Simulated assay, not measured.
Amino acid sequence: MHRTEHVSGCGLVARGQSPAFRATGIASMLSAVWHLYRNRRQIARLHDLDDRQLLDMGLKREDLHEALTSASFENPGTYLTRASRNRASLFYRGVRHD
């Protein structure tokens, strides 16, 4: 039985694992970072839309700002999805939330 030592909380193992296993872990971390960067870049492009277009998607400018200022390791898309669904839920319950 091998004793493994974790390099950090990222789940990369220093000993006891093959180089291919470690390379796969590093590749998956880089992929996750790329996806977060891409999502933030796309959300930043939503600022080009006017307020009416954002409201059609169930969003407001404040939602975009909150998503972009969230922690860098969090996916801002989940925040926008939650905000849009909450606003739609209020709309269908008859609560006006402009």
Rank of each mutant, 00 (worst) to 15 (best):
residue 9 G to K: 07
residue 10 C to Q: 13
residue 10 C to E: 12
residue 10 C to W: 07
residue 11 G to N: 07
residue 12 L to E: 03
residue 13 V to S: 09
residue 13 V to W: 02
residue 14 A to K: 12
residue 15 R to N: 14
residue 16 G to D: 02
residue 16 G to A: 05
residue 19 P to H: 07
residue 19 P to F: 03
residue 20 A to Q: 14
residue 20 A to I: 08
residue 21 F to Q: 13
residue 22 R to Y: 06
residue 22 R to G: 09
residue 23 A to D: 14
residue 23 A to N: 09
residue 23 A to G: 08
residue 24 T to M: 10
residue 24 T to A: 14
residue 25 G to C: 06
residue 25 G to N: 05
residue 25 G to K: 07
residue 25 G to L: 06
residue 25 G to D: 02
residue 26 I to G: 05
residue 26 I to V: 04
residue 26 I to K: 10
residue 28 S to F: 10
residue 28 S to W: 11
residue 30 L to M: 08
residue 31 S to E: 13
residue 32 A to R: 15
residue 32 A to W: 10
residue 33 V to N: 04
residue 33 V to E: 12
residue 34 W to E: 13
residue 35 H to K: 10
residue 36 L to G: 00
residue 36 L to H: 03
residue 37 Y to P: 06
residue 37 Y to Q: 11
residue 38 R to H: 13
residue 39 N to M: 15
residue 39 N to D: 15
residue 41 R to W: 08
residue 41 R to G: 08
residue 41 R to Q: 12
residue 42 Q to V: 02
residue 42 Q to W: 08
residue 43 I to F: 03
residue 44 A to Y: 02
residue 44 A to W: 01
residue 44 A to D: 10
residue 45 R to W: 09
residue 45 R to F: 06
residue 46 L to K: 03
residue 46 L to R: 07
residue 47 H to Q: 14
residue 47 H to N: 15
residue 49 L to E: 07
residue 49 L to Q: 02
residue 50 D to F: 05
residue 50 D to L: 00
residue 51 D to N: 06
residue 52 R to I: 11
residue 54 L to C: 00
residue 54 L to D: 05
residue 54 L to E: 01
residue 54 L to Y: 03
residue 56 D to I: 01
residue 57 M to T: 02
residue 57 M to Q: 11
residue 57 M to L: 13
residue 58 G to F: 05
residue 58 G to C: 00
residue 58 G to A: 02
residue 59 L to Y: 03
residue 59 L to N: 00
residue 60 K to M: 11
residue 60 K to E: 13
residue 60 K to A: 09
residue 61 R to H: 01
residue 61 R to K: 06
residue 61 R to F: 01
residue 62 E to Q: 14
residue 62 E to F: 08
residue 62 E to T: 08
residue 62 E to D: 14
residue 63 D to W: 00
residue 63 D to V: 01
residue 64 L to Y: 02
residue 64 L to V: 03
residue 64 L to C: 02
residue 64 L to D: 01
residue 65 H to W: 14
residue 65 H to D: 15
residue 66 E to T: 09
residue 66 E to P: 06
residue 67 A to R: 00
residue 68 L to N: 02
residue 69 T to W: 04
residue 69 T to P: 10
residue 70 S to D: 10
residue 70 S to P: 04
residue 70 S to N: 03
residue 70 S to Q: 08
residue 71 A to H: 10
residue 71 A to G: 10
residue 71 A to C: 09
residue 72 S to C: 09
residue 73 F to E: 11
residue 73 F to Q: 12
residue 73 F to R: 15
residue 73 F to L: 08
residue 73 F to T: 12
residue 74 E to R: 11
residue 78 T to I: 07
residue 79 Y to Q: 01
residue 80 L to T: 05
residue 80 L to D: 02
residue 81 T to I: 05
residue 82 R to T: 07
residue 82 R to A: 11
residue 82 R to H: 07
residue 82 R to E: 13
residue 84 S to A: 10
residue 84 S to N: 02
residue 84 S to P: 04
residue 85 R to A: 06
residue 85 R to T: 08
residue 85 R to F: 06
residue 86 N to W: 07
residue 86 N to V: 06
residue 87 R to I: 06
residue 87 R to T: 02
residue 87 R to H: 06
residue 88 A to V: 09
residue 88 A to W: 05
residue 89 S to Y: 12
residue 89 S to A: 15
residue 89 S to L: 14
residue 90 L to W: 03
residue 90 L to P: 01
residue 91 F to C: 12
residue 92 Y to E: 10
residue 93 R to A: 12
